[in-house]
Amino acid sequence: MTPDVGNYLLVSAAMFTIGLVGVIVRRSPLVVLLSLELMLNSANLVLVAFGRYHGGQDGQIFALVVMGVAAAEVVVGLGLIVAMERRRMLLDTDEIAELRG
């Protein structure tokens, strides 16, 4: 008896919603980035689960590419946070609103 693909999809959906709530509710840019990681990881879980379900390995390739993209995203995000810190800006996503239309 092994859990079928639907169980993995449910775990992934729950993780995605938790990450989504984190991105919306939290104001510290660091925690927003961490929540984004949660969402990316839940997408990875779906890719791997469907890859296993269909018996192909292409989903795993996609998951690995997503990991690379996540690494690039984190590098840029953390670079922005460090730059903000060096400019002594407030690290608060509600205060960083100069580009608001």
């Binding site: 690379g68 690039a72 590098v75 840029v76 670079g79 460090v82 400019r87």
Partner: peptide, 27 residues
Amino acid sequence: LLLVAAIAAVVLGAGARPNRVRMDERQ
């Protein structure tokens, strides 16, 4: 993409000298 991101991190992290940067208006 990773190469570009690494360059971007260097530019963002080391670009501006802190003492010449305009302080955040509110602060």
